[in-house]
């Protein structure tokens, strides 16, 4: 009995090395689910896209590295 996970991170290779099953690329180490260089609306849209990839990965099996 466990909890399925999807991991949003910038250092995807690190997550892969330790066996994280579903890995989604974050924007940057400094801001995984955002980007201060974007305006508020575009940043929110970016965040939604990244979270959407994570949710999609959750619904798949393991090693479904979405992005």
């Amino acid at each position: 009995m466990g909890v399925p996970t999807a991991q949003i991170c910038s250092m995807k290779e690190v997550a892969a090395m330790v066996g994280s099953p579903r890995i989604v690329a974050g924007r940057s180490v400094l801001h995984p689910t955002g980007d201060p260089e974007l305006d508020a609306e575009a940043e929110r849209q970016l965040r939604r896209t990244i979270v959407g990839q994570a949710l999609e990965a959750l619904c798949g099996g393991a090693d479904a590295n979405a992005a």
Binding site: P4, T5, A6, Q7, I8, C9, A15, G26, L58
Partner: peptide, 9 residues
């Protein structure tokens, strides 16, 4: 919780 999203820096 039935699923979790982890965020890493």
């Amino acid at each position: 919780a039935q699923a979790a999203i982890l965020t890493s820096t």
